[in-house]
Amino acid sequence: MAVRGKAMVTLPTLVRAMRRRTSNHMPSNQPLPSLRRAFSLYDQINLIDNVPEDQIRFKQVTDTGFGVKGVHYEGSLLCVGNLLMSWHPKKLSEVTSESLSIFQTVRPVPEILLLGCGKYIQPVNPELRAFIRSTGMKLEAVDSRNAASTYNILNEEGRIVAAALLPYGVES
């Protein structure tokens, strides 16, 4: 509480000082600089070329599998952090709590499971949603290309993430 009280007393003084400094350095009749060009994350840092050697990064998503580190993997994949495993389900209806039972034992628990449904986003069985929620993970069901891309970004950020990916050619 003492820190909060000190911050509340200091804040008005800080705001007044910043207003004085701003008014001294910027004439009021001069327009602000244009904000038309916003910088994206990739303008600031290049994540693609700075991926650690041991980190999984999906480079290709095909109708039959996935390209990771120059290797093409046929079929479905299950990824947790930087661990890549072959996965049995061939279509979304085969994705069950049993096929995802590894998440009952994985520690630390990933914050999110990205479910790549194939070519199209498909509704996920409510029982499967309940199972995933019971493990402590959130579920994001998207097409497999977006799931792989999102996995790359979250994994590069150092977040604990998992992906269950069906090949892009899967439609139902």
Rank of each mutant, 00 (worst) to 15 (best):
V170K: 03
V170W: 07
P27V: 10
L32Y: 12
L114N: 09
S144V: 06
M137F: 04
Q122L: 15
R57K: 11
G75S: 01
I153W: 06
K90Q: 15
S28W: 06
N46G: 11
A162D: 01
V51L: 01
D143A: 06
G158V: 00
R20G: 15
K119N: 12
L139G: 00
H72V: 10
M18K: 14
V95D: 01
R37A: 02
I160D: 07
V142W: 00
T135H: 02
P89R: 04
P31E: 10
A148T: 01
T96A: 05
R21H: 14
I153A: 04
G136D: 13
L139V: 03
R57M: 09
R133D: 12
M1D: 10
M26F: 15
K59H: 14
M1V: 09
N146S: 00
R21L: 14
L114R: 10
R107T: 14
D54I: 03
L32W: 10
V68R: 01
R145I: 06
Y151F: 15
C79I: 15
Q30P: 05
I112W: 05
Y42V: 10
F103H: 02
T64E: 12
L154M: 15
S97C: 01
W87P: 01
Y73D: 06
E171W: 01
T150E: 12
L32E: 12
P108W: 10
I45L: 08
R133T: 13
L47Y: 11
L128G: 05
L165W: 09
P33I: 07
V71P: 03
G118N: 10
K6L: 13
N146E: 01
R107F: 05
I102L: 15
R107M: 06
P27W: 09
L166D: 06
T105N: 12
G70F: 00
T22P: 00
E171R: 14
E94S: 04
F103T: 00
G75T: 07
T64S: 14
E98M: 04
P27T: 10
Q55A: 11
L100W: 07
E74V: 06
D49S: 12
L84Y: 08
K119F: 14
A130Y: 05
V124G: 02
E53C: 02
L77W: 09
F39W: 13
Q55N: 08
S149G: 15
T135S: 02
R133P: 03
F39D: 10
S172V: 14
I45C: 06
I153E: 07
H88C: 05
T62G: 03
M26I: 14
C117A: 13
L166N: 02
T13D: 02
A147Q: 03
A130N: 11
S34Y: 02
L41Q: 13
E157D: 14
F103R: 02
K138C: 10
F103L: 07
R19V: 08
N29T: 13
E74W: 06
E171K: 14
E157T: 08
D43R: 07
Q30H: 09
N125V: 01
S93R: 13
N50F: 02
S86P: 04
S40W: 08
G81S: 12
L139Q: 00
N152S: 03
V109S: 04
K6V: 10
P33A: 09
L154S: 03
L100A: 05
H72F: 08
L115V: 05
V124N: 06
T64H: 11
V106N: 05
Y168G: 08
A17Q: 15
G116K: 04
E98K: 08
P167Y: 05
N146D: 06
L113V: 04
